[in-house]
C-alpha cells in the first residue's frame, strides 16, 4: 500500500489500483454520511477530483493519487457510507483504476514514510 500527503492510499494488483482514504483521514472527516464515487469509464489524472466524502458538517474532495481509468466504484458505499469510518483501508475503498503509468505508484510514500509524515502534522 502506498500513500499521499492528502491521505489517500493506493494498492496495486497487476495493473489495477484500489484507492481509498487512510484511517487518519477517516478520523479527521468524522462520521461519513454520503460518498460520491466516480463513474466507471471516467479517466482521471493524478490530482484530479476522484470522489467526494460528506460528513454531517461538510463535503471533502478526494483526489486521484495516480492517473488511470475508473474500472469499478464501490457501490456498497451508497447504502453504507459509514464503512469509510469502520474500515477505511479495506472495505471502505472508493474506486479501482486501470493504471496508466505504474511508475506513478512508486513515487508515492510507503507506510513507514507516511507514518513519519503523520508525525509532522
Amino acid at each position: 500500500m502506498r500513500f499521499t500527503k492528502d491521505h489517500e492510499w493506493v494498492e496495486l494488483s497487476g495493473d489495477v489500483a484500489t484507492i481509498g482514504v487512510t484511517a487518519y483521514a477517516a478520523e479527521q472527516l468524522g462520521d461519513v454520511v454520503f460518498v460520491e464515487t466516480p463513474e466507471v469509464g471516467k479517466t482521471v489524472k493524478a490530482g484530479d477530483n476522484l470522489a467526494v466524502v460528506e460528513s454531517v458538517k461538510a463535503a471533502s474532495d478526494v483526489y486521484a493519487p495516480i492517473s488511470g481509468e475508473v474500472v469499478e466504484a464501490n457501490a456498497a458505499l451508497s447504502d453504507a457510507p459509514e464503512t469509510v469510518n469502520a474500515a477505511p483501508e479495506a472495505a471502505g475503498w472508493f474506486a479501482k483504476l486501470k493504471v496508466a503509468n505504474p511508475a506513478e505508484v512508486d513515487r508515492l510514500m510507503d507506510r513507514a514514510a507516511y507514518e513519519a509524515y503523520l508525525q509532522t502534522l
Binding site: D31, V33, V56, K57
Partner: peptide, 12 residues
C-alpha cells in the same frame, strides 16, 4: 468546540 470525541452524529 465543534465536536467532542463522540463526534457530531452521536452527539446529535
Amino acid at each position: 468546540p465543534v465536536q467532542y470525541p463522540d463526534g457530531v452524529l452521536k452527539e446529535h
